[in-house]
Amino acid sequence: MKKKWSVLLCSLLLVGMLAGCGKEENNAAPVTTEPATTSDTTAPAAAEESGKYADGSYYAEGEFDADSGWKPYIVLTVKDGKIATADWNFVSSKGGPDKKAVDKAGNYGMKEKGGAQAEWYEQAETAEKFLIEKQDPAAITLNDEGKTDAITGVSIHVNDLANLSKKALDAGPIEPGTYKDGSYHAEGDQFDADSGWKSTVDLTVANGKIIYAFFSGVNEAGDDKQAYSIDGKYGMKEKGGSVAEWHEEAQTAQAFLIEKQDPAAITLNDEGKTDAITGVTIHVTDFVTLSQKALEGAK
């Protein structure tokens, strides 16, 4: 009998010891394993550490407005993750300087003609400063007319500023070109004795690249050659059997220059024409030489 109790007692003691060991193990602090450190580990991007956006240049453009003839564009620069500069502007389908240049020269006249409290370019600059301050295009809240109550002193339409800023930032930074931003003009020395036209070229550079080119001409009556052709007064198809009108071929040449970014890409033959641009049969010597002349100021 004593032997049975001894066996039972030993069994109970053994169970208690095991239970105690299990309880002690459950109460122990969890063991954590540090992630292995290797030479492949990379630091967070600079933009994530210091700001919202990646450093660099940003660009976006809209379409020509059917009524006004203006096409909007914007250039943004980001430094240390933040929008540092903003240039919101327009080019005209009729040629000539950009909208800010036209306005600063006194040829837009919002104050004189419309009774505005400030000129267009002044309001545009105020809106640009607001974007830089807020660092978010969404801060420019818009009403149904494309205007905003968010920016004091700005009564102009700012929907293009808000929308193109977002478009540019969403697309990410792009490599800038080598030209100096601005509008550039060059024209021939005299009216051609045979045709009566004097060639003109207007170029606009933004983010260092040619974004706009307008090849046209003017006669002594003050007519614009592209407009003259659009109105059917030039008549290359009707009078010369051409497959396209003069303004259509001129616009094809313009697009080629914007694509190539160098007037020298338009190679010329002895007649002053080119085989480099499909569909262009007009003389383009003046387009090449005047584009080169205009870009002298952009270097």
Rank of each mutant, 00 (worst) to 15 (best):
K4Y: 14
W5G: 09
S6T: 11
L12G: 13
L12Y: 06
L14F: 14
G16E: 11
A19Q: 13
E25C: 02
V31C: 03
V31K: 14
S39T: 13
E48T: 15
E49Y: 04
S50L: 10
S50I: 01
A54F: 06
Y58P: 06
Y58H: 05
E61D: 12
F64A: 01
D65K: 03
G69R: 07
Y73W: 00
L76V: 00
G81F: 01
D87P: 03
N89P: 12
V91L: 04
S92N: 14
P97S: 10
K104W: 05
N107G: 13
G109P: 01
M110T: 01
K113W: 08
A118E: 07
E122Y: 05
A124N: 11
E128A: 15
E128R: 09
I132T: 10
A138E: 13
I140Y: 02
T141D: 02
E145L: 15
K147V: 10
I151N: 05
H157C: 12
H157D: 15
N159I: 03
D160R: 00
A162Q: 02
L164H: 00
S165T: 03
A168N: 03
D170T: 04
G172Y: 09
P176R: 11
G177V: 08
Y179C: 08
K180W: 04
D181V: 03
D181C: 10
A186K: 02
E187P: 03
D189E: 14
Q190I: 04
Q190H: 12
D194W: 10
S195E: 07
W197P: 05
S199V: 01
V205S: 03
A206G: 02
G208Y: 07
G208R: 06
K209G: 00
F215P: 03
G217Q: 08
N219H: 08
A221C: 03
K225C: 08
S229H: 06
G235D: 13
E238S: 10
V243D: 15
E245C: 13
W246C: 06
E248N: 11
A255Q: 15
K260G: 08
K260H: 10
P263D: 01
A265T: 12
T267E: 12
D270W: 05
G272D: 13
K273F: 10
T274R: 07
D275T: 13
D275Q: 09
V280K: 06
I282V: 15
V288T: 06
Q292A: 05
E296K: 09
G297H: 09
A298K: 08
A298Q: 01
A298C: 11
K299Q: 13
